[in-house]
Simulated assay, not measured.
Amino acid sequence: MSWIYLMIAGCFEVGFTTCLKLSNNFTNWKWSVAFFICISLSFHFLNESIKTIPLGTAYAVWTGIGAVGTVLIGIFIFKEPSDFWRIFFIMLLIGSIIGLKLVSK
């Protein structure tokens, strides 16, 4: 169950980074509220996951999910560039996340 909590935490991390951009420096109150809800839930689920997953592994996976998800949101929603090297390093990060899952007890 801890790995599911960690995946949920990572998804909420993508949510809070997206809301951060949409909040327009916290001037849009709806997106600002959404940011605080997402960040609170992200930390809650991260905290639940570290009850059985080693802290270093959980943190690396959490930030990895957040980074990959945020880059993908940037590419697909905010029309940020998606050149070869950017995609290459995203795939490398995904491989690292899977590797951490495979070697963790």
Rank of each mutant, 00 (worst) to 15 (best):
S2F: 03
W3M: 07
I4N: 03
I4L: 12
I4K: 01
Y5M: 03
Y5E: 00
L6S: 07
L6A: 07
L6C: 05
M7W: 09
M7F: 15
I8R: 01
I8K: 01
A9F: 10
A9E: 04
G10I: 05
G10K: 03
F12Y: 06
E13R: 08
V14L: 01
G15V: 00
F16Q: 06
T17Q: 10
T18G: 00
C19F: 13
L20C: 04
L22H: 00
L22Q: 06
S23V: 05
N24S: 15
N24M: 15
N25V: 08
F26D: 00
F26G: 04
F26R: 01
N28T: 14
N28R: 11
K30F: 03
W31L: 02
W31N: 05
S32H: 02
V33G: 00
F35W: 11
F35H: 05
F35L: 09
F35A: 04
F35N: 15
I37D: 05
C38M: 08
C38Y: 06
I39C: 08
S40N: 06
S40A: 14
S42L: 04
F43C: 06
H44G: 02
H44V: 14
F45C: 07
F45D: 07
L46N: 06
N47K: 14
N47F: 15
E48Y: 07
E48A: 13
S49Q: 04
S49E: 08
I50R: 11
I50D: 04
I50Q: 10
T52K: 11
T52R: 05
P54M: 07
P54Y: 11
L55A: 12
G56C: 03
A58D: 02
A58E: 05
A58R: 07
Y59L: 06
Y59D: 09
A60G: 11
A60F: 10
A60M: 15
V61R: 14
V61G: 05
V61F: 10
V61T: 09
W62Y: 12
W62C: 12
T63L: 13
G64D: 06
G64A: 02
I65L: 10
G66S: 08
G66R: 10
G66Q: 04
A67Q: 12
A67Y: 11
V68E: 02
V68N: 00
G69Q: 07
G69F: 03
T70V: 12
V71F: 03
L72Y: 00
I73Q: 05
I73L: 06
I73G: 02
G74R: 03
G74I: 08
I75Q: 07
F76Q: 09
F76L: 14
F76W: 13
F76E: 08
I77T: 04
I77V: 13
F78N: 04
E80I: 00
E80H: 04
E80S: 03
S82F: 13
S82Q: 11
S82L: 11
D83Y: 14
D83L: 05
D83A: 09
F84S: 13
F84K: 13
W85I: 12
W85D: 10
W85V: 13
R86N: 07
I87R: 12
I87A: 07
I87Y: 12
F88V: 12
F89L: 15
I90M: 06
I90D: 00
L92V: 15
L93S: 01
S96Q: 08
S96N: 11
S96G: 14
I98S: 05
L100R: 05
L100A: 03
L100N: 09
K101G: 02
K101N: 09
L102N: 15
V103K: 15
K105F: 13
K105Q: 14
K105T: 15
